[in-house]
Amino acid sequence: MIGRASFEAHDLACLRGGRIVFRQLEFRVDAGGLLVLRGANGAGKSSLLRMMAGLIGPAHGALLWNGDDIADDPDAHRARTSYAGHSDALKPALTVAEHLSFHAKLRGQAADKIAAALDAFALTKFADLPARLLSQGQRKRVALARLIAAPAPLWLLDEPTNGLDADSTARLETAIAAHRETGGIVVAATHLDFAGADAVTLTLGERKAA
């Protein structure tokens, strides 16, 4: 569906509160690729993901999609990016299905993949349950089901397996594999080993900050 997309960083630097989090960062992922971010706490995994999502701007360097700087066309970049951050972004009073259909509409897509999204993370039983009754792991699954409800070529996942049990982690791996098969790119900050030995690993914090 995406063809020959590529996502790369050139000489990327991140400055947070006057402190250099990382610099001279380089990576390249092609269509169907998986980039796993590793590094100690505070090494800048979340900052890098937020930078990839366009939430923060790079202090230096650039992120390129198919060779074009994402800052040149932020609208197009937002349309192709699905970001699943630390927080689940759930409203206690809304049901699981309402969250997913709202997310699809928010991203300008038809709400016709809700059933598939619920199924992918074993949430069908809880579709009509308000979010306030969900457990931590279930909440995380709703957040991840958004990726299926509103498809986008680039997935940015910040600690996606946090709070997930073994079965749910396997479901996430299946979803990631299916996404990569269609040419999607996944960037994930995680401590777990994802299935797929072809993943590119980028370890942050190895370079000494000056």
Binding site: A79, G85, S87, A89, K91, G108
Partner: peptide, 12 residues
């Protein structure tokens, strides 16, 4: 609750 990130990263 983190919804702002989803609003800011939405294509609209």
């Amino acid at each position: 609750d983190g919804s702002l990130d989803l609003l800011v990263t939405a294509p609209a």
